[in-house]
Amino acid sequence: MSQQIELQANVTEEHAGMRLDQVLSELFSDYSRSRLKEWIIQGQVYIDGRVADKPREKLQGCETLTLNAIIEDVIDWQPEPVELDIVYEDDDILVINKAAGLVVHPGAGNHSGTILNGLLYHYPQSRTLARAGIVHRLDKDTTGLMVVAKSVAAQTHLVDALQKREITREYEAIAIGSMTAGGLVDEPIGRHKTKRTQMAVDPFGRPAVTHYRVAEKFRQHTRLRLRLETGRTHQIRVHMAHIGHPLVGDPVYAGRLRLPKGASDELVQVLRGFQRQALHAAMLRLAHPISGEMMQWQAEVPSDMVKVADALRRDSEAHDWQI
């Protein structure tokens, strides 16, 4: 279904000389600037009753702006009864603990069975939201917490908070190699020049910052806690591989399986059987997009990653390895 919206606001003298798209983003802050710009171009914004010319049109002050737009169903995908592990829900947001193997958004090779399909099934009103309210994504085989908006206002504010780095996301990971201390990776990330499905550190890419600290040391592996300042595709996986410590099981960035010298049969079996990147979104903290209340959630590390850590711990003990 489509949703008709008709809003009106008065331009103040303080806005004199400002561009139309800038003023609209202030007066109608529930909508993203990109969406407002699109409505201007489509002729759905009026200045004193006339159709606005262009997004960069300068305002004189004291005009009356009218937004008369139709929000079409922006999603062509079908609702499906996908099981969602919801850890929190209210009228504006829900927080999901994503399982391994569950795709967030339909794409090439994954047209159904995604979180988006599940959202359309459980919340039919999400059809009027961009990406059904999905604000940020996790890779298919990364587990853990992600927030989804249930209204235009909530989605707009959450996207803005992400861009302003006001949402805290902390991850648990197991990296290959013995790391002595935590640190920071501040390297831009862009599309790989030849492998178009992969990302890579690229001086011409978008800024990307990852903080990491050592949580536990094993003989030839390290358990980490990481925080993102930015949210680039594959960011943690690319950054850790870039500094020589790719994540255990990463099928894209870790290369061939590396087994510790003298590894027990148990550890060999566990590492060979772990077929995804050892990465879990363990903590999410944000200000509620409507009430402003600070909220935080934790998600326990999944059993398959716990199994890997336990095996690495026993391996270290068996070799009388000490820090």
Rank of each mutant, 00 (worst) to 15 (best):
M1K: 07
S2F: 12
Q4E: 14
Q4R: 15
Q8N: 04
A9W: 14
T12D: 10
E14Q: 15
R19P: 05
R19E: 03
D21S: 03
Q22A: 14
V23I: 11
S25R: 04
L27T: 11
D30R: 06
R35P: 01
L36R: 11
Q44L: 07
I47E: 05
D48G: 04
G49M: 14
R50A: 14
V51W: 05
P55E: 04
L67R: 03
I71P: 00
V74A: 06
P79F: 04
E80G: 01
P81E: 12
V82T: 05
E83S: 14
V87C: 12
E89V: 09
E89T: 13
D90P: 00
D91P: 00
D92E: 15
V95H: 03
N97R: 06
H105R: 03
G107S: 08
A108L: 08
G109T: 04
S112L: 02
G113F: 08
G113S: 13
H122F: 05
Q125G: 13
T128S: 13
A130E: 14
A132I: 14
G133Y: 14
H136Y: 10
D141N: 14
V147W: 00
T156F: 00
Q163M: 05
K164V: 01
R165M: 02
E166S: 09
E166M: 12
I167T: 07
R169L: 13
E170A: 10
Y171R: 10
E172R: 09
A175H: 08
A175D: 00
I176S: 01
I176A: 00
T180E: 13
A181Q: 15
G183Q: 09
I189F: 02
H192I: 05
T194D: 02
T197H: 09
T197F: 02
Q198E: 13
D202G: 03
P207M: 11
T210L: 03
H211R: 14
K217L: 08
R219E: 00
R223Y: 07
Q235W: 06
M240T: 12
M240K: 12
G249F: 10
D250N: 06
V252M: 10
Y253T: 05
A254C: 10
G255R: 07
G255K: 05
G255M: 04
R258H: 09
L259I: 15
K261L: 12
K261G: 04
G262M: 09
L267C: 01
L271E: 07
G273N: 12
A278R: 11
L284G: 03
L284A: 10
S291I: 06
M295F: 05
P302Q: 11
S303G: 00
K307Q: 12
V308N: 01
V308R: 11
A309V: 15
A311V: 12
D320K: 13
